Each structure stands twice: as C-alpha cells, then as structure tokens.
Simulated scan of single mutants.
Amino acid sequence: MEQRENRQPAGMLDNDSHSSSRHLLDGTAQTLRELTGGAIAELRIERVVVGVFFTGVKLSNGCGGVAYTPPAQIKRAGVEILKGSSQVIKGMEVTRVLAGELVGPFAEIVRLSTINALSVPFFNSGRYAVDSGNDISGFDQLFSGRRVCVVGAIIPLLKRLRSLGTAETVIIDQKEDTTFEASLGRRVSLGQTAEALARCETAVFTGASIANGSLPRLLAMVPADAAIAVVGPTAGFIPDELFRRNVALVGTVIMHDSDRALDVLAEGGGAYQLFGTCMRKINIRNVKRIRELHLAGSNQTKRRNAS
C-alpha cells in the first residue's frame, strides 16, 4: 500500500480504457447506493484534485478518497482535452458521478476516487472485518513458505516478505530501470506474467491495476486455490466485488484529513507524504475465503486474539 502503486505492468496488461474494471466498479457503486440510501442524493463533490501521482476527491460530507492517476491517462489527456468542452466537477451530484455522467480524460479516475470516498463510513460500521495500523505482511500465513508473485515492485513490502521467508518471491514490474536487491526476489519479464501467476500460491496486486483496468485479467491468471491480496490507496472501496472474485485480503487506507491530503496531491505529492498525516492503513479480511484456504491461523490472528 505504498506510493509505488505505479509499479504496474504495462503493455499487454494495460488498457486503453477502464472497461475491464468497469464491471467491478459498477457493482461497487450499486452496493454503495443501497447502503447509503436516500442520503446519497444530498451528496456533492466539494473538491477534486488531479495530481501527478494520485487523484483525490472530497465530498460534501467531509469524506475523501484517492486513486492512482495512470501515466497513460495523463498522456492521453493532452490530446483529449482539446477535443471538447470540460465539465465543472465541483458541486456535481455524487449520483451523477456514480452513473458515469462525468466526461473528460480523468472521468473514470474521479469516479473511482468518489467511490473510495463514499466507502469510508462503512469501514467503521462493523460490516467488514477491518484491522488497522499494519500492512498485509502482518498476515504471515499468506506468505511464509509460499510461492509469492508480486505484480509491482513495492520495495518496503518486498523487504518485509523477505523476513517472512517465502518459498519464492517472483516480481513483475513494468519499468526496466526499477532496481532492487537480488535477495528480495526473482524478477521476470512482462511476457512471463501469466506463467508466473499460474505457479504462485499467493498473488499480490497493487491498486493501480484497478485504475488501469488490468486487474480482472490478472485475477484470471491466478490458480483457483491461490491466495490473492490487493494493496494500495486506490483499493479503498468497499470490498464486496473483490471478495466475489476470491480476493482474500485488501490492504488500503482511510483518509482522515481530506483537505490536507488534497493539498499534498495538488503540490505533486504522493502516498508516502499522506501516510500518518492524512490517512491511516487498514486491512480488510475476506474471512470466508481465508478459511477456505486454511490460512486463518496467522500470527496476525493470534496477536488479535491475545489482545
């Protein structure tokens, strides 16, 4: 759940649109409509920032959400923005954003950020199994002694996985200039993505795969009996749709100072600058899936039961 959500394979795993993630997000939007009820009609977009690394939204109820801004989208925006008039997003009804009525080069990223902002109240409602303060490596049963494939070189996470003693850590990263210690794992090419995921016992995907539309295809490459984790601020929406796709663990964030977070993004900052100041880490467990995989006895669970 680091700023390096952007370490995501490109090429065959990148989309020219967000259509591959749209079913996932449409389902999430519908669940949020049902959970929020009539109150959603009163909500407006109070503020939006399209930053270099992340896009952020603050709603009229004070809740905020962020989502990774794909570089490919920024590149296309230079052309698309000249093709027609743009909408004013500030003050727009949230229901219209959810319905996909917002147009423009960053419309889908703003929609995703809005979905994340709408999700915030439900992480404190008891609806989900939420743990605060640690990253996903605290659930060691998902990693220790297992073949792990990490899609996106999240260096702090890789260092923690090394200490857990994985059987193998395979790393897939789109940027050839990304460097890391050989002891952190074995790097494979983008062309070996399907092969690497087919062999893994645990797969880790960054939230950037939601923003760039590649997550559904990546999930389809993972064995049916493998554990799946999705990490990053972009994955900050209610996890029902991810859980339906057999994701066992979501590591994400809750924003608690929306204005400060958007100020940081407006000045070119990223997630590293937001942790501990504007947002806190949470893990959301798919209890049913973890039990199906016989992975419920992690040290994280033991620590929780002992407290």
Rank of each mutant, 00 (worst) to 15 (best):
C63H: 15
N299S: 14
S307Q: 15
A107F: 08
L25A: 08
A203Y: 05
K159S: 06
S137C: 02
E80L: 14
K159F: 00
R7T: 10
G236P: 05
L59C: 12
G62K: 14
S17R: 10
T252C: 14
L158H: 09
G104N: 05
T28M: 01
V48P: 02
L295H: 00
T178Q: 13
P233R: 13
D240K: 07
M92H: 12
P216W: 09
P105Q: 03
R285A: 13
A167S: 11
N246A: 07
Y128C: 03
L190I: 14
I284M: 02
T179M: 12
L197E: 08
V94W: 00
Q73S: 13
F143P: 04
K175N: 07
P233H: 06
S21H: 01
F53T: 13
G270V: 04
Q192E: 15
Q273N: 07
D259C: 01
A129V: 12
N299T: 14
G207T: 10
Q73L: 13
T206G: 05
V247H: 11
T202P: 03
K90Y: 08
S125R: 06
V230H: 08
L190M: 08
D263Y: 05
I238M: 10
V222Q: 06
D135T: 14
R162Y: 14
V48K: 06
E176K: 15
E108N: 06
I171R: 02
A271L: 15
D14Y: 12
N124H: 13
G126L: 03
H23F: 04
E176M: 09
L158F: 11
P156G: 03
T277V: 12
S258V: 05
R291M: 01
N305F: 04
T36R: 12
S183N: 02
T234A: 11
P239Y: 13
L112G: 10
F205W: 13
F106G: 02
G207C: 10
R96Q: 15
G191Q: 13
E168A: 15
I115R: 03
C278A: 10
A198W: 01
N61H: 03
A153I: 06
A226K: 12
I254C: 14
E168F: 02
S86H: 09
R47T: 10
N305T: 04
V57N: 04
A271H: 03
N305Q: 10
G185I: 02
M1K: 08
V247Y: 05
T55H: 06
E93Y: 09
V48D: 09
D140I: 04
Q3V: 00
A306S: 15
E101R: 15
R289Y: 11
R146M: 04
S132H: 10
V79S: 12
L59H: 13
P121W: 05
T202L: 04
R303P: 00
L161A: 02
V110R: 06
D259Y: 00
A41G: 03
R217C: 00
G78T: 11
N299G: 08
E101W: 07
I154G: 00
I74W: 01
S60R: 02
G251L: 06
G276E: 01
E181L: 01
S214G: 15
L112N: 05
Q174K: 10
E201F: 02
A99G: 06
L249E: 03
K83H: 02
M92T: 14
G37N: 05
L274F: 05
R187Y: 08
V49K: 08
R162S: 10
C278G: 07
S298T: 15
D16G: 08
I155V: 12
I89R: 09
P156C: 08
T28W: 03
S17W: 11
D14F: 13
